[in-house]
Design a binder for these strands. Structure first.
Length: 555
RNA sequence: AGUUCGAUGGUGUAACGGUAGCACCACAGACUCUGACUCUGUUAGUCUAGGUUCGAAUCCUAGUCGGACUACCA
């Protein structure tokens, strides 16, 4: 019972806060996406963190759409974000929008103007940039910095009323143009944008900047722990400055390092390029690191949550091995998927001593990891499809499969011995001839034989067909964003291999969209949404571990 | 260069002044009607230099290396 689970740094902060009675021990977090794109695995980490922390400490987690920029945001994204979060298995306390606070935020701005802490600036963006100074040199005050409170009030009201064009005026906080933190050199609070907003419509033509919206929104919702990624750490003094000057609920911001993954890219800009340049087929392409892509790929939500849990949270730079995600995926799929037989690269196997036209039905366990999964029936005949890889003319020493003179077991059926084979004009093996041992029948094997190899098969007469899409990592280098040149030069040309016809056991033809199975000795697959009633399409989620492949590579 | 955050095996993460642990990967073996799963074992780490201390991954000082910040984006 007393197994002390170590805490991450955020849990430590929260537990200390609870201990000290801060906000009466109340914990309230939020997940604040901007509805301008699709969620990816990085967001998944943040979701698991924010919702997970709330759950662990009996708190609440809001979903807040940070929609302060009408130029980039669309309702379409709101829906995809919501369904991604739900699919991950989380339920938000409230669905909220920063745009719902526009009136309140405006009033906060007026408050600051009245306190002499904000002013309307007529400078252009270029002028402002030139007065900003640099990392090493202080900035200079704007000529409009000393406008009177009354004038600022009037001007700001006129800005709101639509008297000015985009870019003509801004509202700025009056802090310190020489501050070493550039964000505190009189940051913009409001800009003019005569644009239609996906929720507030045309009611507003001035929109708050992130820095003037985020902390106050947290505060309005009485969020206790506002958790964001490390690149916002420089914003924290500003976050606190607004809350302090406004004298509102003191939400606190904490930062963690965003999680990176090998063999992919995560920035919205890069992902957008992949989509626009058609390197992938949309945001939910199974190769994309988006939540919708991973869902379509067949990654279970449980696996993603487990992954987020396993990699934890810290403040140091990191790049997590994709292999760890795949491990989590396999770990879960192993427990829940039924085993089925499918032949992806077929050659024909003929059992010369098996009666023509005879059919036998074998019963096969669905999932040895889960006794409750039951069993199914598989028809067996004289002619079977087997995997090309499972036969070799000349077998190397540790090859446990078919070769002239060698024996294997046909999974759930008989032990067979290879006698001969046929090749076509190009030298490709077309047919393998074997004899079966009737007394080795699965379930009541009296042969006394032990064979090292077991292979899967599908009856030629009963096989159904399907398409398989074999996905592999999107990039051929582990950190494409940090290579020389364009990251797109490092796209893996073999990230998708389509096999138009594979043979599947009859039972599998009943599979429905989204179903997940294990193709025995091959990998985990799921039914793709492109499937039609007369054509099933299987996505390869992830391969099985393959020690034989490693063995071969060494040789 | 200024500010700021960080540095523990190949990767991710613990150890809160007192035995450097866990997971993934890799490797070796056992088991196997999936070369899967499972099980056992092995390799491998505290950025550097000083200091404080009986004792330092942990505290202090200096350095090194890496990241972030100069959008009317979030």
């Amino acid at each position: 019972m007393s197994e002390e689970k170590s805490l991450n740094f955020l849990e430590e902060i929260i537990e200390n806060d609870i201990k000290s009675g801060l906000h009466n021990g109340r914990v309230h977090t939020r997940f604040p996406p901007e509805p301008n794109g699709y969620l990816h695995i990085g967001h998944a980490s943040s979701i698991c963190l924010n919702f997970g922390l709330a759950k662990k400490y009996n708190g609440k987690c809001n979903l807040r759409f940070d929609d302060t920029n009408p130029s980039t945001e669309e309702a379409e994204y709101v829906n995809s974000i919501k369904s991604d979060i739900e699919w991950l298995g989380f339920q938000w306390h409230k669905e909220l929008y920063t745009s719902d606070y526009f009136e309140q935020l405006h009033d906060y701005a007026v408050t600051l103007i009245k306190k002499g802490l904000a002013y309307v600036d007529d400078s252009t963006a270029e002028q402002m940039a030139s007065m900003k100074g640099t990392l090493n040199t202080p900035g200079t005050d704007s000529p409009f910095r000393s406008r009177s409170i009354e004038e600022n009030l009037t001007l700001f009201a006129e800005m709101r009323a639509g008297k000015y064009k985009d870019g003509e005026k801004t509202l700025r906080a009056k802090i310190d143009m020489a501050h070493p933190n550039l964000l505190l050199r009189d940051p913009l609070m409001y800009r003019i944008k005569h644009e239609h907003h996906h929720r507030s419509g045309d009611k507003w033509c001035i929109y708050p900047m992130y820095d003037f919206a985020h902390g106050q929104s947290d505060s309005i919702e009485e969020v206790t722990h506002s958790i964001c990624t490390l690149e916002f750490i420089h914003h924290r003094p500003l976050y606190n400055w607004f809350i302090e000057k406004l004298e509102i609920f003191p939400s606190k911001q904490y930062e963690f390092a965003r999680r990176n993954l090998t063999y992919t890219v995560m920035s919205k800009r890069k992902l957008l390029q992949l989509v626009n340049d058609k390197h992938v087929n949309g945001w939910n392409d199974p190769r994309m690191p988006t939540i919708s892509g991973m869902r379509r790929r067949g990654y279970p939500a449980e696996a993603i949550r487990n992954f987020a849990d396993t990699i934890g949270v810290a403040k140091r730079e990191n790049i997590v091995d994709l292999g760890l995600l795949e491990f989590c995926v396999r770990e879960h799929l192993n427990k829940v998927t039924n085993r089925v037989m499918a032949v992806l690269d077929p050659i024909k196997l003929v059992l010369t001593n098996y009666p023509d036209g005879q059919t036998e039905v074998f019963e096969a366990e669905n999932n040895p990891e889960d006794p409750a999964s039951g069993s199914r029936e598989i028809p067996f005949e004289k002619e079977l499809w087997i995997e090309r890889d499972d036969f070799m003319e000349e077998a190397p020493k540790k090859y446990f499969r078919l070769a002239p003179g060698k024996m294997v077991r046909l999974k759930s059926a008989y032990i067979i011995q290879c006698d001969s084979f046929e090749k076509d004009a190009d030298g490709n093996v077309t047919t393998v001839y074997c004899t079966y041992l009737p007394e080795s029948r699965s379930g009541n094997d009296t042969s006394g034989l032990k064979v090292k190899g077991t292979i899967h098969w599908v009856s030629v007469a009963h096989a159904h067909t399907a398409e398989a899409r074999l996905y592999d990592r999107l990039f051929s280098v582990s950190d494409p964003a940090n290579e020389d040149g364009d990251f797109k030069d490092y796209i893996n040309p073999d990230s998708l291999r389509t096999i138009s016809t594979i043979y599947i056991e009859p039972e599998l033809s009943k599979a429905k969209n989204g179903d997940k199975v294990q193709f025995m000795r091959n990998g985990y697959f799921c039914v793709d949404s492109d499937s039609t009633p007369d054509k099933l399409i299987f996505n390869r989620t992830v391969t099985l571990r393959d020690n034989w492949a490693k063995e071969q590579k060494k040789a």
